[in-house]
Design a protein around this nucleic acid. Structure first.
Length: 151
DNA sequence: TCCTTGACTCAGA
DNA sequence: CTCTGAGCCAAGG
């Protein structure tokens, strides 16, 4: 155990791996259209483990690495469209501005400060785009695609 | 060199 | 719905 008290810990990402990973986060974040949001974890799930990083470590930390990437995002990245997996804005200085920007794009927040991801959640990039950029294509939900020939 | 500092998510109870 | 625990460190001042 490490740092248990002050909220949450860690992000072990060596410089070389970080450069690759961050640029992929930004690439995906730039695809999120106005009026939609995605989450740190959803973006991160499209990105393969960077060279030299264990898969288990990647899976444990990639969402927080995505957060770190957004903190360092270039001007042209719509950082406000990335929220946490519960549909809430992660608490930090700048959170108020994020909410303001999203409301200006037409997003609605419930009294708990939560966005309805069924309504405003982004489906993610098209499969072809993901493949072109060397990103991971998520497995299809078998229940979502009806079998041809079956009633 | 020591110390601080970190935009997360998921499963279980 | 809320709450907990687990994941287990590299940079920069």
């Amino acid at each position: 155990m490490l740092n248990a008290e002050a909220s949450m810990f860690t992000l072990p990402l060596p410089k070389a791996a970080r450069e690759i990973f961050f640029s992929q986060v930004w690439l995906i974040a730039r695809q999120v259209p106005p009026g939609k949001v995605t989450s740190y974890g959803q973006i991160a799930a499209f990105i393969p483990a960077p060279p030299g990083i264990e898969l288990s470590q990647h899976q444990a930390y990639r969402a927080r690495w995505a957060g770190a990437a957004m903190a360092a995002a270039p001007e042209d990245v719509p950082w406000q469209r990335v929220v946490n997996g519960q549909g809430k804005i992660s608490q930090r200085p700048g959170a108020a501005q994020q909410r303001q920007l999203l409301e200006a794009e037409g997003l609605a927040f419930n009294p708990a400060g939560k966005i309805d991801l069924k309504r405003f959640g982004w489906a993610g990039p098209p499969t072809g785009w993901l493949r072109e950029h060397g990103l991971l294509v998520p497995p299809e939900d078998p229940a979502a695609s009806p079998q041809p020939g079956l009633f």
